[in-house]
Structures are given as structure tokens and as C-alpha cells.
Design a protein around this nucleic acid. Structure first.
Length: 834
RNA sequence: GCGAAAGUGGCGGAAUUGGCAGACGCACCAGACUUAGGAUCUGGCGGAGCAAUCCAUGGGGGUUCGAGUCCCCCCUUUCGCACCA
């Protein structure tokens, strides 16, 4: 009975034992100082929002990062592997409303719970560098950066149309609006409101953010493409059309076009319904106003249907005319529902001959369609619209005969000379609106003074701390505005009574620079020490979900460039390599409470242990693909770990009896050593880039299967002790990044002192890994017939001879003619037979 | 509509450079131990066929001695973009 117990793998005993020991060793996962002499490696997983519960997506993300961190420790790197909490945000306020718990208390207790879960999973974080963005010693630096950016002209306040989510009761950034709805409330339509808001001038870096993408070759192409599209650079020309014949400054309509070469084909000017000229015209024309209101209504309905792109085109003529500055042609001005107010100038020239949308519109309303580009390829000449730039200008006065590109150059020059236009680069990217009318965020460090206007809070008064006592509601604007002791201050400038700003910052501000704080988390004099940041940055490997491709990942690139220009850092980009892991799904669908297919990490850990749960998360699919969670699979990994445990414990005494590695002339166990060194080579290679950890786990399973099927030899003492020692030691080392608890337990069982993390990652010996003999497949006309065994270094001749000597090959080729023999040494033989 | 990725047994997946398709695991089947255990071990497991053998990587063509892998066309799924002038 006692013996049976002894041979049972029990993660519920092993794992808490090591968890305790690890917690008692603060140096174990701690980054060392720059002077340690080792090469540095910064591996980072995106910090979680402290909802209170880890989900399987977290487990997967952190299992990948932790495996990499452990591997790099074993490779002798100085590893920074930190963790923190993206701790501001609306859920804390919702919880406060629901349970009457203060946001701070709710958040901190969630952090404690999730930290326990992470420790239970055995994740190797340097908790000495832990950060929580909701604490004043972190968010004071948000305020500090805000003031520095204000000084640099990168922060401004302006009244404009902004996105408003009624559910969040706050403003949202453009990046947080998905298909016209709130990114947090997919069913809630975002409204447009005119509000005075704080903005970061991210557009000042638009070109650099775009150019930088070319250098990020360690980032997924998908993410780079998404950012390029989001930044949306387009080169063109601004052109002023004159209103009627009255050529005064006030009566110009500026349009933006990328195809100024087609301007002789413009047959109308189209304005967005929100265009300021439309407001002037409708004020004097009630009939027109009704029509324009209808266009606005159509836009609104299309947005509600989530399909603004497919709006049916409608327009109304204003009765007014514009003069084309190049040929003085008089063309009608229309208002159209498909013209976007916030792109370009909110007005376009309509060229139906060479633009698909304009063609559709002109056809519908009977506007003239003029051909001004003749295709270079005569085969495509004829039908309009002709959209390509591969052509020659016609019907364009003195520009006739020019290529499109040359015409664009000359027309731009003419516009500059005539002072009615200029070359223009337009970006789709808009400035980042960061004001939030919420409580649980970083207070914006400004004061409104009747006399002095906007006054920045002086540095020495930072941090502006959130009040502890507050009543949370989702009505009536910023909750902070209802806390008199927060609002009422004296102006730092003139000393008069003044009002504190009551908006807080977007939580994406918090996560835009958090990874710098990890390098110097306790600094109370500065956000971080520049020398420390310079040592650790850029991040060597960043790991997270692709859903942040244009939110967090563009904001943090922006922030890095701002900090560089403030002289704080020298790197241009935050992360050298980015890895976006796939989703965890169940029964073919994303896990969600609604579908009732949520698998709890705690439940998995309780039933199978942390090692099995983590290892399954790596084994079930390659990390970049979606992973279908199958509980039977976790049980399978758990059985495998039990087998490793039994095998190692059983043969540990023999292994411990040896004290050296096997000598090269050792007899016995060559096949096992060969398999071992092949496995080491395979896994090492994967860590260096391919990251197919699923096949790494499979390779370890193969190795264990092979050792186990040699059990009879092991029992009979036919495998020398040094070989057994090397096999088991290496097996444990290979397992250490994936199943840290079991590895620690078995490392100790093998009589090893010190942490397995400080042991050297095994090195594959090519001589030991090499096969003596190979099985070479023999094909006849490309079809497999048999395999022949040959020496591994056999040349083409020898292989051919072996193939031709094979009985099966002989009988298949009898009476036929061998036309050609293809021999790929080490691979195969193919006989072409007629 | 445009762009990208993917499509392989009952399931998750493997095949790193054009070279034995299905590694590894799950599920299932048979057996051993044992007598009730969701334990362990052994064997089997793409389809058809008694077999030799044939068929098989979404479908159809092509290149090649040889194609899951390369090229062309089509279908499906997922993701991103979608009047950006």
C-alpha cells in the first residue's frame, strides 16, 4: 500500500510545496543589474485588466511568455520578466454601483486574487517590479508626462465633435469605436457630441509612426498592415474652387484630391452635409435644409445598421456654382450623403469619368461624364469609368498628352503659382482624444482659473490624487465634479479661487509606457532612470493578443517617440519582436458566459495541476493559431507527466550513482542518447524562432516513450549509469520551461542542488545525434515500394545498389526498362521505369 | 467589394528546404494485470479490399522523376479594411 502511494504523481502535493519555496526566494525570478555581465533579455506579456479572474486566454499568453523566460534564464541571460495591472477603468465603477464597494478596494482585491492565481500557475515573475496603474506612485507620472507634452505642444484642448458612449457615459477615442459602436459595448451605438476635450497630438508623429513600421520586421505583417491602414497616408493636392464669380478669400471651397490630373473632368463639387458652407446655405433656404437633414438622417441610419460603407448615394443640388480654377468652368455644387466630413476637407471635386463613386452618382443624377484620361493600353480604351493612372491626358487644355504623374506635378505647380492650391499629404489618423468623464482614471493635472485660463498643476503639487470617498453614478458628467474638496483649489498662478479639471485620462494612457516603469518601478524622482531603460530597451519579445493591434500598440509606439524627443530614452520603438497568440476557443466558439462554454483555470489546476494545464495550453496547437480547449487533452498531458515522474523516480538511484557524463566510447544506450540529442536539437531550434511549442512537447513525449520502451534494458542494468544520468538530467532540463513544478521536483530527486533555472540548457552533440543507418524509401515512378537500410554516409552509388538489390524492387522491375534513377542521398531513391 | 490567413483521419494537430502523408496526444477497439480503478501496461486504429493492391491532404487543372508543400482557376471558413476622394 505504502509502495503504491509512493509511485503516484501528485501535483496537488508537489506544486504547493515548490510554490512556497519559490516565494521564499526573491532572487529566483529577479532581474539582475546591468553590471552582471550577462546578455539581457526582456520578455513581456501584455498586462491584464484586474477583472478578478484569469481566463484561459491569459493562461495561454503567460504560459508562452513563461516558457520563453525560463528557457532564456537557462541559456544564461539576464532576464526581465515582469507583471503588472492595467488597473483603471470603468468596470471598477460599475462594480461600485452594483455592490457599493469603492473602486480602489474592488480593484486591489481583484489584483490580490489574480496574483494568487498566477503564483499558483507557477509563473516566474519578478514581483519586486510589479506595478498597478491605479496607484498614485504610478499615475503621478501620467500627469508628469501630460505636463511635459503640454509644454511641447503635444497636448491641447479643443471643442469638437467627439464619440460618446451612452453606456460608458464618457467620450471615446476613434480607436475605441468599432463599426460605429463602443469597443466595450458592441451593441451600443456611439453618438457624436460637441464637447470640449483634451487631445494628444499623435498626428504630429503620423509620418514617423508609418515609416517606423518598415523597421519592425519582428512584428506580424498583419499588425503592420492594420497600422498602415489606420494611419492612412495619402498624397494629393488641395485645390480651391471659387464660389460663383466672386473670387474673394471667403468664397473659396477647398477640396482634397489624389487625382488632380483628372480635374478637367470635374463636373460637380460635392460637399459633406456637415460642411460649414452647407450650414450657411441652408440658413437661407428652408427647402434645402429639409433636404440636407434627410441626407444626415440617411447617414445616421446607415451607421446604425453598421454599414456606412454601403449607404445608398443620395444628393441634392444647392443651386450654387463653383469655378474650376484651371479652366474657369462653372460646375454645380451639390451636397451628398457619402462625403465624409472628417476626412480631407469634407468636400470633393466629382470626376465621374475616372472615379467609381462619382460615376455612380453622376449616372443617377444625370450629371455630365467627361473623359480626360486615355488609357495607355488601347485594349482598355472605351468604357468609363477608367480608374488607372496608366494613361495620357485628353480634353485637358494645355496639359493634353502628359502622363498622369507628370500632369499631377505640373498642375500642382500651377496651383501654387496661382495661389489656389498646394500639394497635401492627408492622414486618416486623428488626434487622440483622452478626456474621460469618469472617476476611476488619472486626474488631468490642470486648473481652470477665471483670470489666468488653463493653468498646469505645478510639478511639485503632483500627484493630483483621486479622492477616497466618492459617490459613483453614471449620470451628470464627471463624478469628480461633485467632490467640492477636489474641485475647489486656488490658482497656482494668481492665488484666486479656481476649479480643478474633473476629466480623467483614457486608460490607454496608462498602458502606453508601463513597460518602461518595470525597469525602475520604485523610482520616486522620475518615471524611470534613463540608463536602466536604455539597458533593457527595446523589449526583446512582446506577447499578447492581436486585438490591441491599433489601440495599445499604436499608442505605445507614439509614447516611445515622445519620450525619445523628451530625451528620456534613445530607442525609437518599444519592442523588437511582437508575437500575437491565437484565441482560446471551446466547441468552435470563443469562450463566453452567454454560450456557457467558459473553462475556469482554477478548475483545471485543481483537477490536473498547473503543469498539466500550462503544458496543454502549449501542446494543443501552435501558439499563433486558435486553440480548441479539450479537457480530455489536459488529462492526457497529466498522464504523460505522471509517466515522467514514475520513470524518473524509479531510475533516479541509478542516475545518482554516476557523477559524470557518459564518455564517447561508452557501450550501451547509444540509441537512447541519439534520441536525446536529436530532441535537444529540435527544441533548442524551436525556441530560437519557430516557436512551435506543440511539437516541442510532442518531441519530449517521443523521448519519454523511447526511454520507457527500453525499460527492460534499464532494469537489466544494460544501460550504464552515466547514460541514465544524462538522459534523466536532460529530460528534466527540457521539461523545465513547460512544466516548472515537476522539473523542480525531479531535479531535486536526481540529487541536483540549486534551482533548475540556474542549470545550463543542454547542448546537442551532433556526433551523438547522428544516425548510423538510415531507412531510405525506394519509389518506382514516384510510388513507394519499399525501404532499404543503408549506412548514414552511403553515397549515391551505394544507395542505388542497395535499392536495385531489393527483392521487391527486383520483382517490380522485372522485364521493364529502368530509364532513369534519381538518388537523393539521405532521402530517397526513385526509379523511373517504362 | 478589397486584402490576408487557413482548409490534412472521429477530434486537436505533425510533416522546418519539393522527397516514406497522418509524428504526438485525445477518443475508440482488443488484450494483460486485476477482480470495479476516471489507475497501469501491451497491441490496433485514414478509407476500400480476404489479399496482392488501390484510393486519399476542400474541388479542378498544371509544373516535376516526385506536390499537403510550387503555379493557375474555383469553393468554404476566419480575420482585417470597406465610399478615405
Amino acid at each position: 500500500m505504502a509502495e503504491e502511494n509512493e509511485l503516484r504523481y501528485d501535483p496537488a502535493t508537489i506544486e504547493p510545496k515548490w510554490q512556497k519555496r519559490w516565494a521564499a526566494d526573491p532572487k529566483l525570478y529577479a532581474a539582475e543589474s546591468a553590471s552582471c555581465g550577462k546578455p539581457k533579455y526582456y520578455v513581456l506579456e501584455m498586462l491584464p485588466y484586474p477583472s478578478g479572474q484569469l481566463h484561459m486566454g491569459h493562461v495561454r499568453n503567460y504560459s508562452i511568455g513563461d516558457a520563453l523566460a525560463r528557457h532564456m534564464w537557462m541559456r544564461g541571460y539576464n532576464v526581465l520578466h515582469p507583471m503588472g495591472w492595467d488597473a483603471f477603468g470603468l468596470p471598477a465603477e460599475n462594480a461600485a454601483l452594483k455592490n457599493n464597494t469603492p473602486p480602489r478596494e474592488w480593484t486591489l482585491s481583484n489584483i490580490a486574487a489574480m496574483k494568487r492565481q498566477m503564483e499558483r500557475l507557477g509563473l516566474g515573475y519578478d514581483w519586486a517590479t510589479e506595478i498597478a496603474t491605479c496607484l498614485p506612485d504610478y499615475y503621478r507620472w501620467n500627469q508628469w508626462f501630460f505636463l511635459r507634452m503640454y509644454e511641447k505642444g503635444l497636448v491641447y484642448r479643443k471643442k469638437s465633435k467627439v464619440n460618446w458612449c451612452p453606456e460608458c457615459a464618457t467620450v471615446l477615442a476613434n480607436e475605441q469605436v468599432v463599426d460605429g459602436c463602443c469597443w466595450r459595448h458592441e451593441e451600443t451605438l456611439v453618438e457624436q457630441r460637441d464637447l470640449e476635450q483634451w487631445f494628444f497630438r499623435i498626428t504630429a508623429y503620423a509620418q514617423e509612426l508609418l515609416d517606423g513600421l518598415d523597421s519592425l520586421d519582428g512584428w506580424p505583417e498583419k499588425v503592420r498592415t492594420m497600422q498602415r491602414n489606420w494611419i492612412g497616408r495619402s498624397e494629393g493636392t488641395d485645390v480651391d474652387f471659387f464660389l460663383d464669380e466672386n473670387k474673394t478669400e471667403k468664397s473659396r471651397i477647398r477640396v482634397f484630391t489624389t487625382r488632380v490630373d483628372t480635374i478637367f473632368g470635374a463636373t460637380s463639387v460635392q460637399l459633406a452635409p456637415q460642411h460649414e458652407l452647407v450650414a450657411v446655405l441652408t440658413a437661407a433656404d428652408t427647402k434645402l435644409k429639409v433636404q440636407v437633414d434627410e441626407l444626415l438622417d440617411q447617414q445616421k441610419r446607415a451607421r446604425e445598421a453598421g454599414d456606412l460603407g454601403a449607404i445608398e448615394k443620395h444628393g441634392v443640388p444647392t443651386g450654387r456654382f463653383a469655378i474650376n480654377p484651371y479652366n474657369n468652368q462653372r460646375i454645380p455644387i451639390w451636397v451628398a450623403n457619402y462625403i465624409l466630413a472628417d476626412y480631407g476637407t469634407g468636400a470633393i471635386m466629382s470626376v465621374p469619368g475616372h472615379d467609381e463613386r462619382d460615376f455612380e452618382f453622376a449616372t443617377k443624377y444625370g450629371l455630365p461624364i467627361v473623359k480626360v484620361i486615355k488609357p495607355a493600353d488601347p485594349a482598355t480604351d472605351g468604357t468609363l469609368p477608367f480608374l488607372s493612372e496608366e494613361g495620357i491626358l485628353v480634353n485637358s487644355g494645355k496639359y493634353d498628352g502628359l502622363s498622369c504623374a507628370e500632369a499631377q506635378r505640373q498642375l500642382q505647380e500651377a496651383a501654387i503659382r496661382g495661389a489656389f492650391g498646394e500639394p497635401k499629404v492627408t492622414f486618416r489618423l486623428k488626434d487622440w482624444g483622452i478626456s474621460r468623464q469618469r472617476f476611476w482614471g488619472t486626474p488631468i493635472p490642470f486648473i481652470h482659473c477665471e483670470k489666468c485660463g488653463l493653468v498646469p498643476v505645478p510639478d511639485k503639487q503632483l500627484p493630483v490624487v483621486l479622492p477616497a470617498q466618492i459617490e459613483i453614478t453614471l449620470q451628470g458628467g464627471s463624478p469628480l465634479s461633485r467632490v467640492p474638496e477636489f474641485v475647489n483649489v486656488t490658482c497656482p498662478n494668481c492665488g484666486a479661487a479656481a476649479r480643478r479639471e474633473t476629466d480623467t485620462m483614457d486608460t490607454f494612457v496608462d498602458s502606453s509606457w508601463y513597460f518602461y516603469r518595470y525597469t525602475d518601478a520604485k523610482n520616486s524622482k522620475a518615471p524611470f532612470d534613463s540608463a536602466k531603460a536604455q539597458y533593457w530597451f527595446p523589449i526583446d519579445q512582446y506577447i499578447g493578443g492581436v486585438e490591441h493591434a491599433i489601440l495599445h500598440l499604436i499608442y505605445s509606439r507614439f509614447w516611445t517617440k515622445v519620450m525619445r524627443d523628451l530625451g528620456l530614452i534613445v530607442n525609437d520603438e518599444p519592442a523588437r519582436r511582437l508575437f500575437t497568440q491565437g484565441m482560446v476557443i471551446k466547441d468552435g466558439a470563443k469562450m463566453s458566459k452567454n454560450k456557457g462554454n467558459v473553462v475556469s483555470p482554477d478548475d483545471m489546476v485543481a483537477r490536473y495541476g498547473a503543469d498539466a494545464t500550462r503544458m496543454y495550453a502549449l501542446f494543443a496547437a501552435p501558439p499563433d493559431r486558435d486553440l480548441d480547449w479539450q479537457e480530455d487533452g489536459v488529462a492526457g498531458v497529466s498522464r504523460f507527466l505522471a509517466r515522467v515522474w514514475r520513470l524518473t523516480i524509479k531510475h533516479a538511484p541509478l542516475a545518482r550513482s554516476a557523477h559524470a557524463s557518459p564518455s564517447k566510447t561508452q557501450n550501451g544506450g547509444a540509441a537512447l542518447l541519439r534520441k536525446l540529442h536529436q530532441t535537444i536539437a529540435k527544441i533548442t531550434l524551436d525556441f530560437e524562432g519557430r516557436w512551435h511549442f506543440n511539437t516541442c512537447v510532442a518531441a519530449i513525449m517521443e523521448l519519454v516513450n523511447e526511454i520507457q520502451s527500453s525499460d527492460a534494458q534499464l532494469e537489466a542494468g544494460e544501460i550504464p549509469a552515466p547514460v541514465v544520468r544524462e538522459l534523466l538530467r536532460s529530460l528534466v532540463l527540457l521539461l523545465a520551461p513547460f512544466a516548472p513544478y515537476l522539473a523542480a521536483e525531479l531535479w531535486e530527486a536526481l540529487g541536483e542542488k540549486g534551482s533548475v533555472l540556474r542549470a545550463h540548457w543542454p547542448v546537442s552533440d551532433p556526433a551523438l545525434a547522428k544516425e548510423d543507418e538510415l531507412e531510405i524509401p525506394v519509389q518506382i515512378n514516384g510510388k513507394l515500394v519499399n525501404v532499404v537500410r543503408v549506412a548514414a554516409d552511403a553515397d549515391a552509388k551505394a544507395i542505388e545498389a542497395a535499392a536495385l538489390a531489393d527483392d521487391k524492387v527486383k520483382s517490380r522491375t522485372a522485364g521493364k526498362k529502368i530509364v532513369k534513377v534519381i538518388v537523393v542521398p539521405g532521402k530517397l531513391v526513385n526509379l523511373v521505369v517504362k
